[in-house]
């Protein structure tokens, strides 16, 4: 299961208090866009992280590429990945971070994209399921999912693939118990748990992939 504690911010340069302060300041601001640009430029220079509530230039690093987007601070990472970057392998199942279909990796750790604001991820490395294939070669976890028919409708599958990748990254020889615990945050409605378990166990038994 993606570690919920990771949803509190570390290392991105923004936190909830800064955001609240910023949105208050923005009510009075007349040149919001200019202010926002200044603030982005101020990142990493020791200046306070204050953001306006209007659209702000945000740089996200996703699957090794930098993207500069105009986003309101309240824009949720999941929506930005899906709607602005067309990375739709990350699925929108609910807005309560309870299904795991939106599992991505941030700085190598599994995170639910609906639990983060996009601006929280500035300066971090975001990896979506799309990073596990290049059109020709696919990650061994994906091959394993296909081999064990660990899918039906397929809607939860990319989220499970990312969560499985994360389990095996953490412990390439993960036990059944670890697999069940760490995939326990993902839900499948069609009922593909049998195949997913077989896939993850097979890879773990040979020492990871």
């Amino acid at each position: 299961m993606p570690d919920q504690s990771q949803t509190t911010n570390r290392g991105s340069g923004y936190n909830r208090r800064d955001f609240l302060k910023g949105s208050g300041a923005a009510v009075a601001a007349t040149a919001i866009a200019a202010q926002a640009t200044d603030e982005v430029q101020a990142q990493g220079k020791g200046k306070p992280n204050v953001v306006s509530s209007g659209a702000t230039k945000v740089k996200l690093t996703v699957n090794g590429k930098d993207h500069v987007l105009m986003l309101e601070p309240r824009a949720v990472l999941l929506d930005v990945l899906r709607n602005d970057l067309n990375l739709t392998g990350c699925k929108d199942v609910d807005d309560r971070t309870a299904s795991g279909a939106d599992t991505v990796m941030i700085d190598g750790k599994p995170v639910l994209a609906s639990s983060r604001l996009a601006i929280q991820c500035v300066g971090q490395t975001i990896q979506t399921v799309e990073s596990l294939s290049d059109g020709k070669n696919v990650d061994e976890v994906i091959t394993g999912f296909v081999k064990h028919d660990a899918m039906q409708c397929g809607f939860c599958t990319p989220g499970f693939v990312m969560a499985t990748r994360a389990v095996l990254n953490k412990n390439p020889k993960a036990s059944l118990e670890e697999i069940q615990k760490q995939l326990g945050g993902n839900i499948c409605r069609c009922g593909t748990y049998h195949g997913i378990t077989k896939c993850a166990l097979e890879i773990a038994k040979k020492g990871g992939a």
Partner: peptide, 25 residues
């Protein structure tokens, strides 16, 4: 047999109706 659309589903390449993002959506 392997599901012939298994790779599309597992990689996220499969486009569902909720994934359609034509310009200006």
């Amino acid at each position: 047999h392997l599901r012939i659309d298994g790779v599309e589903k597992a990689t996220g390449d499969a486009k569902y109706s909720s994934d359609i993002n034509t310009k200006g959506t």
